[in-house]
Nucleic acid binder design. Structure first.
Length: 613
RNA sequence: CAGGGUGUAGCUCAGCUUGGUAGAGCACCUGCUUUGGGAGCAGGAUGUCGCAGGUUCGAAUCCUGUCACCCUGACCA
């Protein structure tokens, strides 16, 4: 029979009852490996994905997924499908493009700003490429769901998303077009059976399952939840030194959070100071940063107060407050989320021009300058910036000058008594070594991670904005309560490479490896060797394993190097040596050795046991 | 967006200072030899030197502009 045999007659329908693995040949697909890493790649996963022939760049942050990558992505997607379906999700597919109008309705066109890909069609209609699909799905469901009886409902899709990131980077780790699983849940209530909390918790477990099944070492952390809901957001971080996110963890209680969200254990504070150093003005011209000023003053950054001027975010109700002064210790960073919670409205860094016009000596601001706008400003002091007995250095409220000997109780006695003017609250980012918020005596430790998943209690933000209501059993109208749950599928693949590789190449976990077994055919022209490969791969695929046969007419060294590079979990080498002994050479990719001879009738068993341990 | 860097063959890069027929290694094609960790020999093919202007008898090289890509920062799956 020739390769071009006449078409096989297929039955109209034949249910698949057993899973049969794929058998592919290197010579029939394309795996363009590179000897040298392309110059533009600096991150391990980016370099390896390029070198091993998984991806090619099309434009900044936009990539082709070549056959190997697509196989892995499909496996990750399948794991996600199984876990989403297990919690009652239904898969669907929404379009990538949508009318801008619905993003205007929720205000997200503005929130996303330039990150939103926008285009105009031939009729002049404003159109966007979806960064996520809350609007699209809410727009659909507000027409399709009319009764509480249809809830709860969980829908998801796996699709390319578009975000015009300011700076795409590190290959697939941050692209402008990327593959994402986005799920949305809809509820009548937050609590109780069928409520948001129940689904959120189920999703948390499903996400844990997904990442565990993908063979990833990960940590679930509390994340910044935005303006809607307290502890209602978690991120799933793949633990990896090269990750761009910082998470803090309490080794005793297990508490873990994104640095942006991480709480800090209680600290004593006091405005009382018994230091008698006088308040002294010092000329500090052209001092670049707080470190420079501190050095000039002969103190450390931790002896200084940093006063940051912020203002209410556009459009928020601030109760007549025009300026928010955040005071933290000089070596600390203001956390805008915590500050928002402290003052009760969202704040943004003040527009420098306006702040100067209002009298703030930007760069030299002290807590005293809040008085410049009496009745219209509030000063929020971090506990670490109010420690008794400390004499602070801070700005002098005039350009090019700082003061030393700042004493809270002496300098601001009257103001401190007015709790509506001066508040003390935790408003800084947590740092390694800070006290744990959950276990007294424990301190936070730091680790790096790659955010691959994020789950979120949305509440009614979108349903309110878009008018998605249902009637409950008492004929009362309710805004539908929503949750949303994202996984960066392409990022997950890259994170896996980032986490699991060595000097020679990738090391895939069995569950998401493009192929389970990589057969290196030493002599592809030798009929006997080819027959053994044929027979072995048939046996392996019948058992459900995916097999790649390297049948190229290349020298052994080239094939071994490429096998290491593309990183399949098991390599079987078919060569004269082992065949004479009645077997093939079997080597696990994660095993540093040279592999060992396995008798032919034990190869399948060996593969299965290697893959499942 | 600000700061920094790079654009020359499929990949890594040299050539540019001081203008004069566009190069190397690897990869690719043909042949021979070789065949268990990126082989050897011989022959061959490969480029609008990112693009557009300008200066010049002559521009990869000098000048101007522009585009693309990468890296460092605030956001995010």
């Amino acid at each position: 029979m020739t390769e071009h045999a006449t078409a096989v007659a297929h039955a109209p329908f034949s249910p698949v009852t057993v899973h049969v693995g794929d058998v592919d040949r290197w010579s029939k697909t394309i795996i363009p490996t590179l000897r040298d890493a392309p110059a533009e790649a600096t991150t391990p996963s980016h370099q390896l994905l390029l070198r091993a022939g998984y991806i090619r760049q099309v434009a900044a942050g936009v990539y082709d997924y070549l056959p190997l990558a697509w196989r892995s992505l499909r496996k990750i997607s399948q794991i996600i499908r199984e876990e989403m379906n297990a919690v009652g999700g239904s898969e669907m597919l929404m379009p990538a493009m949508a009318p801008r109008e619905i993003f205007d309705q929720t205000g997200r066109a503005e929130d996303y700003g330039d990150d939103l890909f926008q285009l105009t069609d031939r009729h002049g209609r404003a159109t966007v490429l979806g960064p996520t699909h809350e609007e699209v799905i809410t727009d659909f469901l507000r027409h399709a769901v009319t009764s509480y009886r249809q809830l709860p409902l969980i829908l998801y899709q796996i699709q390319s998303k578009f975000r015009d990131e300011v700076r795409p980077r590190a290959g697939l780790l941050r692209g402008r077009e990327f593959i994402m699983k986005d799920a949305y849940s809809f509820h009548l209530a937050v609590e109780g059976k069928g409520g948001l909390d129940e689904t959120y918790d189920a999703m948390f477990r499903a996400y844990s399952n997904v990442f565990a099944r993908c063979g990833l070492d990960f940590t679930a952390v509390e994340a910044e939840a935005g303006p809607i809901g307290g502890s209602a957001s978690h991120e799933f971080m793949v633990n990896c030194e090269t990750g761009e996110d910082t998470i803090l963890r309490c080794p005793v209680s297990g508490y873990a959070a994104n640095v942006e969200k991480c709480e800090i254990g209680a600290r004593a504070w006091s405005f009382e100071g018994n230091a008698d150093a006088p308040l002294t003005k010092v000329n500090t011209p052209n001092m670049p940063g707080i470190e420079g000023v501190a050095a000039h003053l002969g103190v450390t950054a931790a002896d200084m107060l940093k006063t940051v001027v912020l203002e209410p975010a556009p459009g928020v109700e601030s109760g007549g407050i025009d300026w928010v002064l955040a005071v933290v210790r000089g070596d600390h960073e203001v956390n805008e989320g915590k500050l928002r919670d402290a003052v009760g409205f969202k704040v943004v860094l003040a527009d420098e021009k306006r702040a100067r016009a209002a009298g703030f000596a930007i760069g030299y601001v002290s807590p005293l300058s809040g008085a410049l706008t009496a009745g219209k400003s509030v000063v929020v002091v971090d506990p670490d910036a109010a420690q008794g007995n400390t004499v602070w250095a801070t700005g002098a409220d005039v350009p090019d000058h700082h003061v030393t000997g700042f004493n809270w109780s002496r300098e601001m006695a009257a103001a401190l008594a007015d709790s509506s003017y001066v508040k003390v609250a935790e408003i800084r980012n947590a740092m390694v070594g800070d006290p744990s918020p959950r276990e007294s005596g424990a301190v936070l430790v730091e680790q790096r991670g790659i955010e691959t998943g994020h789950i979120f209690k949305l509440g009614c933000k979108y349903s309110d904005a878009m008018g998605f209501h249902v009637m409950d059993e008492t004929q009362k109208r309710h805004s539908v309560i929503m949750g949303c749950y994202g996984i960066g599928v392409s990022r997950t693949m890259a994170a896996c490479v980032e986490m699991s590789h060595d000097d020679s190449g990738m090391i895939w976990p069995a569950s998401i490896a493009p192929y389970h077994v990589h057969i290196v055919l030493m002599k592809p022209n030798d009929a006997e060797h080819a027959a053994v490969a044929e027979q072995l791969s048939a046996q392996l695929s019948t058992a459900g394993l995916d097999v790649l046969i390297d049948d190229r007419k290349e020298r052994p060294g080239v094939k071994f190097k490429d096998a290491d590079l593309i990183g399949m979990p098991i390599r079987l080498t078919i060569g004269a040596k082992a065949l004479e002994a009645g077997g093939v050479e079997c080597k696990a990719r994660s095993d540093p050795g040279k592999g060992e001879m396995v008798p032919m009738d034990q190869v399948l068993e060996r593969c299965l046991s290697t893959l499942t341990t």
